[in-house]
């Protein structure tokens, strides 16, 4: 799966929760407090279900989840090691 294909799946999910149509791919939406307290786990579950990969404890770094670019990079890396 290419990076663009991953982003094409990630963006509709994010925009359902983040009401900011001009959100940039590298914009930190965690820092901008655009999300609620349940969102972090919703995002983990979305990534696992959509890309059939497992997010693990050592993936818990804010740089893996805080922008469209970072999520896509995490997925790319995991697809490389876990398949999917």
């Amino acid at each position: 799966m290419t990076l663009d294909e991953i982003k094409a799946k990630v963006k509709p999910f994010l925009f359902k929760y983040i009401k900011k149509p001009d959100l940039k791919d590298d914009e930190d939406f965690f820092a901008s407090k655009l999300i609620n307290s349940l969102f972090a786990m919703q995002l983990v579950m979305f990534i696992e279900k959509e890309f059939k990969i497992k997010v693990e404890d050592n993936d818990l770094q804010i740089k893996n989840f805080n922008s469209i670019d970072s999520i896509s990079a995490l997925v790319t890396g995991k697809l490389g090691t876990q398949g999917g």
Binding site: S37, L38, A40, M41, V44, D57, N58, L60, Q61, I62
Partner: peptide, 18 residues
């Protein structure tokens, strides 16, 4: 340690509370 430093509420407690 469960999870990573800084993720105790957003990921660990949120999951447990769910």
């Amino acid at each position: 340690l469960v999870g990573r430093i800084g993720f105790g509420v957003t990921h660990v407690a949120t999951h447990a509370l769910d």
